[in-house]
């Protein structure tokens, strides 16, 4: 193979992206877990460790740009590297949702609002599962696997709607908790957006393999506000 240097570097970057992905997965699972345990020290750790993820993202971005400049890839290599730039960005933003959840955890503080921990965990697990398979499909450049994932977003959306309705009903019944209800909604929103971003990764996987840029899944609120 005449492009051993490029291929070696590419597989190194792929490994690093895997690593970044698992860090993101861990941080969102941890952040939701702190909602269950209400361990503020742990929440602080999750909040702080977002920096590590940010640094890793910049290191990866730098490596990709250097590879673009020095190896001057074309066709599939070019699509792969440009998609990687986008994917590391997505991963970093997904980590920001985890950081946001940890922050909201402080805000909730010792108020006695009922946190729908079970549903949050379900949302997080579903999102993480989608990310895990979505990232595998991306790294292995498997368009079929990638194409199936965005449909699962409805599971997360349903959970979000369920939490939304329940929280609104609570707030109507008991207007004093409206601030805390708002916090609960933000958590749900962050987890919902987390899953949405997996769709973007899947779109890039299709782009790498077919060269087509297309919108996938049913992301209805692309313009949602983010809490970070």
């Amino acid at each position: 193979m005449p492009r051993e240097t490029l291929d070696t570097k590419l597989s190194q970057i792929k490994d690093e992206i895997y690593l970044l992905g698992s860090m993101v997965e861990q941080s969102v699972l941890d952040s939701v877990d702190t909602l269950r345990t209400r361990d503020m020290k742990e929440a602080k750790r999750v909040y702080d460790e977002d920096n590590i993820i940010n640094e890793k993202r910049y290191a990866l971005e730098n490596a990709i740009i250097i590879l673009l400049a020095t190896q001057q890839p074309f066709a599939r290599d070019l699509r792969l590297l440009s998609a990687m730039l986008l994917v590391v960005n997505e991963l970093e933003r997904m980590a920001d949702y985890a950081k946001g959840i940890a922050k909201i955890n402080f805000k909730i503080g010792d108020s006695n609002i009922a946190i729908p921990v079970r549903d949050f965990q379900k949302m997080a697990e579903q999102g993480v599962s989608m990310l895990h398979r979505g990232l595998s499909a991306f790294i292995e450049q498997n368009p079929n696997q990638a194409a199936a994932i965005p449909q699962e977003d409805t599971i997360v959306d349903d959970l979000y709607n369920k939490i939304y309705r329940a929280t609104i009903e609570q707030a109507i019944a008991n207007p004093e908790i409206i601030d805390q209800a708002n916090n609960i909604l933000w958590i749900a929103h962050n987890l919902e957006r987390f899953a949405d971003r997996v769709t973007n990764i899947c779109e890039r996987t299709i782009f790498i393999t077919t060269g087509e840029l297309m919108e996938m899944g049913s992301s209805d609120d692309e313009n949602g506000i983010e809490f970070e």
């Binding site: 193979m1 005449p2 492009r3 074309f74 066709a75 599939r76 290599d77």
Partner: peptide, 9 residues
């Protein structure tokens, strides 16, 4: 073409 332009020819 893919192989040629990506240097894997």
């Amino acid at each position: 073409t893919e192989d040629y332009i990506s240097g894997r020819f």
